[in-house]
Simulated scan of single mutants.
Amino acid sequence: MKNFSFLLMVIVLVSCKSTYLDAKKSPVLLDINKETDDYAFVNLKNYSNDFVFDMKYATPDNFLKEKVYPCGECFLRVKTIKSLLEANKAFLDKGYKIKLYDCYRPIAIQKQMWKIVPNPTYVANPKKGSIHNKGGAVDITLVDSLGIELNMGTKFDFFGEEASHNYSNLSKDILENRKFLKEIMLQHNFKSFDSEWWHYNLTNSSADKVSNQKWRCED
């Protein structure tokens, strides 16, 4: 009985440990194509230096007005990163790169966000979850070679009609910037979200499981 209790304790400890993702950056870039599990969560920073990160929910600079992430990391499923790297390569070839605002979001943080703003217009109900909770969604914009964001007409997480892909009462430059972002993303296995110009879901990612793997921040 004592041996069984000890074994059970070890299993519980290992299980608890495995729910955390390590945010420590690899000293060298890794090859995403060598990852054999497409559904594993990995840190984008370990596979490319060609992205800009502005993880809004790791700061109070967001519509919640609160920091809800422990630190600004971008974890995604391997299959999502494979497509995102290809999309970014296409942008790089044209003199731009992707800037990320949000990536994978544990369901526990989704619940925290819902507690702050319990309104499905702004926050997905955690009972159902969102593609962010499945590691298949990214919130992004583009920056030019000087790191300046392209004008997309609204800020990230602006919830008025002006943020919609279908809203046309904008300048020609803004409409062209949104079209440029959307066309490249759609060419690389992502789908747009009508009401938010910044939000893209990996195709068929809605069938994946909601996850609650949190990350340990690098010291």
Rank of each mutant, 00 (worst) to 15 (best):
E73S: 10
K17Y: 13
Y39D: 14
L64W: 09
S192G: 11
E149K: 11
N46C: 05
R105V: 01
F156N: 12
K89C: 00
S130T: 05
V52I: 14
W114D: 01
S130F: 02
K24P: 01
G72A: 07
H188A: 06
K17T: 08
K2F: 13
N49H: 14
L100M: 10
E161K: 15
N62V: 11
L181K: 08
L142R: 08
E183R: 12
F190Y: 11
R178S: 04
L76Y: 01
N201C: 01
W114Y: 05
K155G: 13
E218R: 07
V14I: 14
S5T: 05
I109S: 08
S5I: 12
Q187R: 13
V78I: 06
A108D: 14
I116C: 05
T19A: 12
Y96N: 02
D22V: 08
G129V: 02
G153Q: 06
V28L: 14
M152H: 09
W114G: 03
I184H: 08
F180L: 11
D61L: 09
F158M: 07
S171A: 13
L181F: 09
P120Y: 07
T80L: 00
N43L: 15
S168Y: 06
K79F: 04
N151W: 00
D144Y: 13
I11C: 12
Y69T: 00
G136Y: 01
